[in-house]
Nucleic acid binder design. Sequence first.
DNA 1: TCTAGTGTATTATGTGTCTAGTACACTAGC
DNA 2: GCTAGTGTACTAGACACATAATACACTAGA
Lengths: 125, 125
Amino acid sequence: MAAEFASAQPIYLQLVQRLCGQIVRGAYSPGERLPSIRDMAIEVGVNPNTVQRVYSELERITVAETRRGQGTFVTSDQGRLRRLREELMVSHVTAFLHDMREMGFTAEEVLQCWNELRALSLPEE
Amino acid sequence: MAAEFASAQPIYLQLVQRLCGQIVRGAYSPGERLPSIRDMAIEVGVNPNTVQRVYSELERITVAETRRGQGTFVTSDQGRLRRLREELMVSHVTAFLHDMREMGFTAEEVLQCWNELRALSLPEE
DNA sequence: TCTAGTGTATTATGTGTCTAGTACACTAGC
DNA sequence: GCTAGTGTACTAGACACATAATACACTAGA
């Protein structure tokens, strides 16, 4: 992966968000070991220091834990992961609604646009 | 306004987005003059250089135009404003759906969360 | 014990953002 | 013409982000 970090947001925050998403949707299981800092750096095409920062942040929000000399692991606390999932959804939906309101869009308009684009992006069930 | 720029995104981009939102929802009319660089800087609590950058960006995307010695004005091209409105909605909805997908949320889950939060944020009609 | 693979820490460099201050050119109105 | 209010341009400095390179400490396994 050669990495595409187009957004104006810092790379390390984008990576934190991406990893949280992968963890939350089960791409990484509870307790599973994440790639080493050096491997992940190569994988996403950034500097190892940047990945270290990402892993530190994941640890700070108690989503991952590091064992010196062994690696960094997704937390085994499944309750924490469920809460994370809920938090992420609420924060994203809230921010989305805020933006839509700022631009004066009505619920109807947004839903119509949503329905036109949904098929491309979200599983139905 | 003392300004709250908590996001990791650069202030000038947040301001561009905010102004686009205000223009698109009609807080500023087509052809209306925006506050001067210096006034806007005071109003939102940032440096005049930052506002200059914002106005330059608005001009670059043909949403505003500046007249030396007179001020910066919202474009009179209402077609451009309609397109901007559409662009903003599509890009926001697309990004939102992308994020939701990244976290493995289903359309049903998102809609449920949406309905729980909608009343606080969006006008119904 | 030795080695390879971990995370951790430090220093240096370049870039972008934001602030601060100053100066200049243009326009409108007196 | 003069003045106040515009946008424009430039230099300088502080700070965060990202990279680069290096060194160190810990762990597991041969």
